[in-house]
Amino acid sequence: MRIVPKILHFLILIIFLILQISFLERLELFGLSFDLVMVTIICISMIDGILYGTFYGFISGLVFDLMLGNIVGVTAFIYAIDGFAASNFVNMGYNKRRILAFVFVTFLITEINLILTSIIRYIFDLNVNLVDIGLELLKRPIFNIALIFLVYPVIRAGSKGEDTFEFGYKEKD
């Protein structure tokens, strides 16, 4: 196990987090927005495995909470669960159909992310509109799915082929 790629992945994640706050949030197109951090956590989970996915998710969420969050710890929890679940989905057998795996895993994690966020906000007494959440459950994964095909090669470039999840078109099952 080489530690340098893992550290590199962590640095990329933190840079992407700042990129999300400083730049991507302003690029809302047709009401759809990206979640670069979540997509990066999914990629790290696929490449480095469950431990790094969960831990990096937790740390990046914590940094986000400290910079912009309402309640410190909430985003850390959500991103950690995202990392944990992404790795589990891959281990469950989604890696049999590689390109589809990216789509399905990103779709599922985006939905989990949104549902968890809504539940936690509801617990903390913030209003939750079910119709709006339903709409968001449909439209939010679209850009995240497109984004994962851009982010994955960047994350993988640093791992020098040591990942646990190969990119689809390389080999046949």
Partner: peptide
Amino acid sequence: ILSIIIFLCLLIV
């Protein structure tokens, strides 16, 4: 791992 992370998050919150 998951239990530790959940515990940590609850503690931080």
